[in-house]
Design a protein around this nucleic acid. Sequence first.
DNA 1: CTCCCGATAT
DNA 2: ATATCAGGAG
Length: 215
Amino acid sequence: MVLNKTNIYSEILHRLNILYPEIKSNLNFNTPFEFYVAIVLAAQCTDEKVNTVTKELFKRIKSFEDLDRISLEELEEAIHSTGFYHNKAKSLKEGAKYIIKHFNSTLPNNFNDLIKIPGLGRKSSYAILGYVFNKSAIVVDTHVKRLAMRLALVKKADPITVEREISSNVEEKNWFKFSYMLNQHGRTICTAKNPKCQECILNDICPKVGISNNK
DNA sequence: CTCCCGATAT
DNA sequence: ATATCAGGAG
């Protein structure tokens, strides 16, 4: 099937909506604080692994003040299995300090403030906006980036390019849903390695069917 | 562009 | 044993 630019976005939106009708984070959390911790740990780590770590961690730390108080060593040990634990522990403690000092111990609900917090980049900031505050956000992680490339929505594998392309071709009310669905599809069907093109609902409109194994 | 790091699949 | 996965900072 050959589609013009507007139609490929609308086809993706409609077809993936059948598979992923509900937006539900793969990270377990009950409060904005918990999501903040989880999203920092989720950098370069699977959500499943993060969940096993936070299950125990959230019994011990329940606020930015708790995070500020816990010793670096204790925190590093608790999050060790998520990888990059020196960086993440440092980010969490510096981030907590920053939020206490500049945002009255409350996670901000706008991008410009979130991105200033140490340890939060674009992906994490937008994830907080979408999952915690139900605001419009385009969360470009490695899955979304990969699918945008395979579906030829972008020529450059750069997150900001992907954000721009989605924002100018999808209605704002669907931004978060669109990036969410690409993410879910990337985890399950359009995987980095050995994508399941045969069972893919988009295989007739995907330029990379059958020839993709990475990139 | 390099560094940071463990877990899992092969 | 080794390749692959998964973001942010400097």
